Simulated assay, not measured.
Amino acid sequence: MLMITKQRKRILDLIMQSDVHLSAEMVHDILKNDIDPIGVATVYRALNLLYEAGYINRIHHPQYGYVYDKNVNEHYHFHCTKCHNILDVDLPYGEGINEEIKRHINGDVCSHSLMFEGICEDCKKNTES
């Protein structure tokens, strides 16, 4: 069981209160000016530990490396190629895909991730204006 230190708690609280997926750099930028600043190396270590312990989700981002998400349930994501935000996609997670691939490769599949790409609603509105 992961020990939740004061710094890890601050980082976890920030992720849980965020409506967007945050990179380690974003987390650091928010917390570095607090009364009790947190160093960038501590942010990276804490995010990795919180992810490995199952408190948060980690998603590969084409620009930022990884971004972190409070939603730890299996779900899909959408990457806007204009603003580079990552959005959760509210579709049922397809467990059947794991079984299909398992049969196809004659091996074991534990999970899968799927990233859709395109232009988000906000960016689409801004281009149409």
Rank of each mutant, 00 (worst) to 15 (best):
R10Q: 07
V40H: 06
G118K: 03
H104W: 02
E52K: 12
I86C: 01
D69W: 04
I38R: 06
M3N: 12
K102G: 01
M115I: 08
E99L: 14
I59L: 07
L87K: 08
N106G: 14
V109G: 03
E74L: 13
V67R: 09
E117P: 10
K6P: 00
I105P: 07
I105A: 01
T127M: 15
V89Q: 00
V20P: 03
N73S: 15
L114W: 12
T127F: 15
T42F: 06
E25V: 09
D90K: 04
K124L: 13
K9Y: 02
V40C: 00
C120F: 10
M16H: 05
H84W: 11
C110Y: 15
P92C: 00
M16W: 09
N57I: 08
L50I: 08
H21E: 05
H61S: 07
E99T: 13
L22V: 04
H60S: 11
I11A: 08
H28L: 01
N48G: 02
H21F: 12
Q17R: 09
S111M: 01
N57A: 04
L49H: 08
S129W: 10
G96S: 13
T42Y: 00
I38N: 07
S113G: 06
A24W: 05
N126K: 15
I11L: 07
R10S: 02
D13N: 11
L49W: 05
K125N: 14
F78H: 13
M26P: 01
L12C: 07
E128T: 14
G65P: 07
N126S: 15
V89F: 02
Q17G: 11
Y68K: 03
H77K: 13
N71T: 12
H61G: 13
R103Q: 15
I4T: 02
M3E: 13
R45L: 00
I101D: 09
H21C: 10
V72N: 02
N48K: 01
M3W: 14
S129A: 15
H28D: 03
V40F: 04
T81Y: 06
M3G: 03
G96Y: 04
D69V: 02
R10H: 11
S18G: 05
K6V: 04
F116A: 08
I97H: 02
D90G: 00
E121L: 15
H77P: 04
D88H: 08
G54D: 06
L114C: 09
N33W: 12
G118W: 03
L31G: 05
T127D: 14
